[in-house]
């Protein structure tokens, strides 16, 4: 149980960290996909089956595709390297320091807090219960999420679509 969690932790953190260091953007994106799969494995480990599969469907199936397409569409030239230009050492040091400070504060908070009532057995939540929850008490949130998704996708298409080329008739 703990061993599986340790392995999942290692997978998630290692792939995410390596992905963020690599110069090749495609490799970063693919390693991040591995990290997202690890997160899905964590959800499975915790007993949230539905969320795990939804995570795979959304992140591995959809978001990774959008990311990869974006990487390919934003290359300056066909043969240009995908590598990312170097940033200044100062910036890297400052960023790492800030992240390290956040990590240490969060970690300290986690380690010093006493959590009450650690349940040993996973709570049972069937897909039917989840559906009843989503269609019952959370129906309004579900509808709002649907609206957000629709608006966001329409907005994304509008932003990303190239300006319409002038038609041949418009030459006058």
């Amino acid at each position: 149980m703990i061993l599986a969690l340790l392995l999942i932790t290692l997978l998630i953190l290692a792939s995410a960290a390596v992905a963020m260091v690599l110069r090749n953007l495609i490799h970063s994106a693919l390693l991040l996909v591995l990290s997202w799969c690890g997160i899905a494995a964590f959800y499975l480990w915790a007993g949230a089956e539905f969320v795990a599969f939804a995570q795979i469907l959304v992140y591995v199936g959809a978001i990774s595709m959008v990311v990869l397409f974006a990487v390919l569409l934003t290359r300056p030239a066909r043969d240009a390297e995908l590598s990312v230009p170097a940033v200044t050492v100062l910036r890297v040091a400052a960023g790492l320091m800030a992240a390290g400070m956040v990590a240490s504060i969060l970690g300290l908070a986690v380690l010093t807090t006493r959590f009450s009532g650690a349940a040993t057995r996973a709570p049972q939540l069937t897909v039917k219960d989840l559906g009843a929850l989503l269609a019952g008490p959370h129906a309004a949130a579900l509808l709002v999420t649907g609206v957000i998704l629709t608006v966001a996708l329409l907005g994304a298409v509008l932003i990303a679509a190239p300006a319409p080329a002038p038609r041949p008739e418009d030459h006058s």
Binding site: L30, I56, V60, G61
Partner: peptide
């Protein structure tokens, strides 16, 4: 036997797109 078997099936199917991208790239 999974409670969310159909979702599992289509999640596994959606992940194959990644392999095709890897092959092409």
């Amino acid at each position: 036997e999974l409670d969310a078997a159909v979702l599992y099936f289509f999640a596994a199917g959606a992940a194959t797109e990644l392999a095709i991208f890897m092959a092409g790239w």
